[in-house]
């Protein structure tokens, strides 16, 4: 069964280990601005929400790419940016309605979560279990909805 990243914001403490692990994995740098997973802060609610690509079935980024630089990894189900092919036109960054594919000025290419070939560094680094890599029995938008639904019914939610 394919696995997917499962995110439980209730367990996130905003330690940013995930962002550091991602930046290190992909850029050999701890510059968290380059991380493909981002923890968003809600000060008023005292909540932290890790956020990255859900590898949605629609694959808006992949279909919008004019030069075939985004491919499906048949093993992990991840949509992967082929860096040498990407020209940096950024069409995918506006096509993805989740905002989870981004342009990196220093490389001139876009980047997104590629599930680290099936061993996501963010999940490994997360000390609280807020990010886990689990069997996926839901996909794409359904996955997003399930995630939203889970947190929606939580009493901690405002």
């Amino acid at each position: 069964m394919q696995k997917s990243l499962h995110i439980d914001p209730n367990k996130c403490t905003a330690c940013l280990q995930c962002e550091m692990a991602c930046a290190w994995e992909n850029h050999r740098s701890f510059t968290i601005a380059k991380s493909r997973i981002k923890v968003f802060t809600f000060h008023k609610e005292g909540r932290f929400v890790p956020y990255t690509c859900t590898q949605c079935d629609e694959a808006w980024c992949m279909t919008a790419c004019p030069v075939d630089a985004i491919r499906l990894d048949p093993v992990t189900g991840a949509k992967i940016v082929l860096e040498p092919t990407c020209v940096g036109c950024k069409v995918c960054t506006i096509a993805c309605p989740f905002g989870t594919i981004n342009y990196v000025a220093s490389t001139g290419k876009v980047q997104k979560c590629d599930l680290c070939d099936g061993e996501p560094a963010c999940a490994k680094a997360c000390p609280t279990g807020a990010i886990t890599y689990v069997d996926a029995d839901w996909t794409g938008l359904g996955k997003m909805r399930q995630w939203a639904g889970k947190t929606d019914t939580n009493p901690a939610t405002v």
Partner: peptide, 14 residues
């Protein structure tokens, strides 16, 4: 501002 701009599409279209 270039980060996460796709979310603008999500918000408007949705």
């Amino acid at each position: 501002f270039a980060d996460h701009v796709g979310a603008f599409r999500g918000l408007i279209e949705g």
